[in-house]
Write a protein that binds this DNA or RNA. Structure first.
Lengths: 116, 116
DNA sequence: CTGTATCCACCTTGATACTG
DNA sequence: CAGTATCAAGGTGGATACAG
């Protein structure tokens, strides 16, 4: 019963915490964006090119969302014409571990499912 | 340049693999469902009670999705009235690691953001 | 108990054109 | 280059009633 209580408590905590995380990562594009930015900072147009299928509108929207959620930092460079750099914050960086685990699972899953 | 190629390749792989995973986990409720089932198999009504906010329709739909994706197994028990057990498959079990990482991140994020 | 059927409001996304 | 505005379409999720 002690074990049962602990299980229940732990379960509830995980559910809520995972939900918090997914709330911040909602939508189709946030994980791909973070995955790209895990390796280096990028400009808007670089992201647009490297994330296949995303539209400019969605990229803008997602980037704005993530900036508000403190996942990434936006920097306007005074080049001519101006360019904008996006990079992960510490919060964003720390998501890398979770995303890697998802990717590891996804890789194995795809492989085994397709071998069916 | 070699490093650059590797970075690019690894990045692409991670994006695709994470996308595969998120494809299977799409929607609002799959992660909570898996989190609950991580600890023990559950019946439909137990899931309905323990996952706060989910409707019966969505629970049915998500469970069906996940069964098709081989994430969980559905077993009809010949009780009176009949009950149905859901449990994770091996694929589903292996997602636990990734979800735990998400939860760890979510916990820290919530804590630090609220401390703002 | 374990679902399904229907209806509906909302949200997300995409295409396209446009701005500074 | 880095976005914004507008419109349209489809998907998502909730309420309710019903079925086996």
């Amino acid at each position: 019963m002690e074990a049962n209580l602990n299980e229940k408590a732990e379960c509830t905590v995980i559910i809520r915490a995972a939900h918090d995380a997914m709330d911040v990562l909602n939508g189709k594009w946030k994980i791909p964006i973070i995955a790209v930015l895990c390796f280096s900072k990028k400009r808007y147009s670089e992201l647009l090119n490297e994330i296949k299928g995303i539209s400019g509108k969605m990229l803008s929207k997602e980037l704005k969302d993530m900036e508000l959620n403190l996942l990434l930092k936006r920097t306007v460079l005074s080049t001519q014409p101006i360019t904008v750099q996006y990079e992960l914050t510490e919060y964003g960086e720390r998501l890398k571990v979770a995303i890697e685990q998802l990717a590891i699972w996804g890789t194995a899953y795809r492989k085994e499912i397709s071998a069916k």
